[in-house]
Amino acid sequence: MAISRLIARPLLSTLFVYGGYHAVKSPDALVAKARRVTDRLVPLAKAQGIPIPEDPATLVRINGAVQVGAAAMLATGRAPRTSAAVLAASLVPTTVAGHPFWEDSDRAARAQNKMQVAKNLSLLGGLLLAAVDTEGKPGVAWRARRVARDARRQARHLAHDAKLEARLAARSIR
């Protein structure tokens, strides 16, 4: 693993460990903000048949636990692409619920929430990069293209050899 990944992954994970831990430990401080999102998402999930708790405090705790777990996995390099994608997915509703600058009438509060949204967008960018980082190894798409190219080449060679064999067989019959 490159030294940059060894340093960057734990640094990228710190905010999620910190925030997730506090969400699990004391969700009551976040429930009012979370209600903005949970009141809309829970009915949608239920309509799709997804079993999901309706209590916002439970959902805040679950989100916090997911963030701590995925951040720990990212920091230690265990399934880093999957854990980065999970963190990115959990960051979106967290940002929408926690920093609704469009609802603030106070200029200072609006500016503060805009700054937090910008910070979270920066984190989202880093997480998306981490989610697609193959560490210099070929990705699945490259491997699939390579297999298809090799199969086409093999088919051309087999067809060419078959034509040669057919010509030889035709000559030997005469």
Rank of each mutant, 00 (worst) to 15 (best):
P138A: 14
I3A: 13
T38A: 09
D106K: 05
R174W: 10
D104E: 15
E165N: 11
L59F: 06
A155M: 13
A97S: 12
L127H: 05
G126A: 08
P93I: 12
R167Y: 10
G98K: 06
M115T: 09
A162Y: 11
I50Q: 09
A108I: 06
R40C: 00
I173K: 13
A170K: 06
A88T: 06
V66F: 03
A141C: 00
A72M: 06
V117P: 04
P43Y: 10
R167M: 12
E165D: 14
K33V: 02
A130V: 03
Q116I: 00
V96Y: 06
P56D: 13
Q48Y: 00
G77E: 11
V17P: 05
K114I: 07
M115P: 01
N113L: 07
A23W: 02
E165T: 13
T95D: 06
A151D: 14
P53T: 11
H22E: 15
S13D: 01
E165P: 00
S4P: 00
Q116F: 01
T76C: 14
L127N: 02
A170T: 10
T58Q: 14
V92L: 15
P53Y: 07
D28E: 15
S105Q: 14
R174A: 14
L59Y: 03
V140C: 00
R5Q: 12
H22V: 11
H22W: 15
A75Y: 03
A89I: 13
T134K: 04
L44A: 14
V96W: 10
A169D: 14
G98N: 06
Q112E: 13
K33L: 04
A79K: 09
G136C: 09
A2F: 06
G136Y: 10
P56N: 12
A166F: 05
D39N: 12
V147K: 11
L30T: 04
Q154P: 01
T134P: 01
V140Q: 12
A85D: 03
R152A: 13
N120F: 00
A72K: 00
K114L: 12
L91T: 02
V60Y: 00
E135P: 04
S26T: 06
D39S: 12
I52F: 03
V147F: 11
I173W: 09
V117R: 02
L11N: 03
L164Q: 14
P51G: 00
A108P: 03
S172W: 10
W142I: 06
A85C: 04
D28A: 15
R61Q: 13
D133R: 02
A79L: 15
L74I: 05
V66S: 08
T94Y: 09
A170F: 08
A148W: 11
G77W: 12
L168C: 07
P51W: 06
K114F: 07
D150E: 15
T94D: 02
A47V: 01
P10C: 11
A70C: 07
D28V: 09
A84I: 03
V42R: 09
T134W: 07
R145F: 14
A57G: 08
D133H: 03
A72D: 02
S105D: 15
L124A: 10
D39M: 09
P138T: 13
A141R: 15
L91V: 05
